[in-house]
Amino acid sequence: MTLFRVFRGTRDGGGLHDYQVAATEGMVVLDAVHAIQAEQAPDLAVRWNCKAGKCGSCSAEINGKPKLMCMTRMSDYAPDETITVTPMRAFPVIKDLVTDVSWNYEVNRRIPEFKPRKPDAADGTWRMYQFEVERPQEFRKCIECFLCQDVCHVLRTHEKHEQFMGPAMLVRAAVYEMHPLDEADRRDYLRHEGGIGFCNITKCCTEVCPESITITDNAIIPLKERVVDANYDPLAALWRKVTGKAP
């Protein structure tokens, strides 16, 4: 039997409750939580859907680390190890392991939208090459589990939700910003409303991403560099002033 300590409660309060679960071969943490729900605590709230690491619903913190419960094998832990399951810390708890992640969707709505250039052909279609669209395609793997938002210390510890959009939304902005057809300029938005300067590159977001998206190196740092182009590079500013064009 494995001892599980699961958070039970709401945003007003709660605590860790102990449950004993018989671990079987091939079991993942979500299976154990379902076993608790089926046999010991039918009112235990847990959000899940695909059980295949593709819907991003069962995000939680297992022994303090943000993870998908469905992708965390019981065999990763010692048989006598206590497993603590708590909800994501960066978002308000609704009940037990379920958090309110609606803030992410509000931020998503505020990102300047995709703005394609004029069609390349008379029939209203565009031409682009696979090699140049591969960069934003990496970010399309995002399953919106929001584990990166949860682990980001700017949101998790410092609660800068009003000032910083978080890594998941920076990835979302990068999808549009790096698209070969897009013409919108999001650098001012990223600097001010997006608060990209709050990110200090500690790469926790990349470490927890279940889709292995290279969030920091391929999305956030390139966006930071674009913000530098527009705001912090004196030579680029001089070039723009003299030529009237971006360097």
Binding site: F198, T202, V208
Partner: peptide, 26 residues
């Protein structure tokens, strides 16, 4: 800032790289 992922930090009033001196990282 942070010492490790999902580990408590010693300070509050975080500004990241949005203010001096760390804005110079740009």
């Amino acid at each position: 800032d942070p010492v490790a992922c999902a580990v408590g930090e010693p300070r509050h009033g975080y500004k990241g790289e949005s203010k001096f001196p760390f804005i110079l990282q740009n």
